[in-house]
Amino acid sequence: MTQYLTTLLGVPIATPSGAVVGELDDLLADARQWPVPRVLRVEVRFPDRDRGWLPLDAVRIGPDRVSVDAGASRNPPDRTHLLRLRAQLLDHQAIDLVEAAVVRVNDVVLTQTSAGLEVTRVDVGLTGLARELAPRSSRGLLGRLTPRAPWQHELAWTDIDPVESAIDHFQLFDAHAGIRRLAPAAIARILPPLRPGDRMAILGALGGETVAAVLVASDARFRRLLMTKLNQ
């Protein structure tokens, strides 16, 4: 079963008796799971704006409601290796390793497998954008209709590289492994739209010879900028 993050955000979280305790604010996935992150926790926003966290196995995610058996803990979990899908992935830049381009994440596609709820793809096309911009009440309908849209553009999790600035407090399973496989000219193409810190993080993950080849392949103005940063 496939779900979209945007259709889950803001969904009411209710006890078996039907009492709404809050709404779904984020999903936290284990970023060191390989090959794809697995969702471990649900972040709840209570009516008093405070937040709580529930283990995924304590909730049942339905199309328009999340049912919960236990009360949510208000103690934040250790986030060292937890990827917050809304806060750190949605709306942020990511690198499309297939097209060697910098894209924006418009939605996150979750798939229920035997192992659990996994982050299998990200939507970088107009369908994801439409779901994100739509009122919450119509996102579910859009989520059911848009997978058939011809302009849908989803990328497998293994074909993207999230940029560092959004997730700087932990390391992914193998940060920038995909970028290391790209040709220097492709890397030179993806660096300019990134923030300076992200460019340096990528160059830092490459070998010396590759960095030199990337510099050679870069536009002259941009090469000067990169060399200034590298010399600092």
Binding site: D91, Q93, L129, E132, L133, P193, R195, P196
Partner: peptide, 21 residues
């Protein structure tokens, strides 16, 4: 100079797609 990005890109990353739109 500091971010290497344009205004609406920064607004989206910081405040979400609706404010950027």
């Amino acid at each position: 100079l500091a971010t290497g990005q344009g205004l609406t890109g920064l607004v989206r990353g910081r405040y979400g797609v609706r404010w950027a739109a």
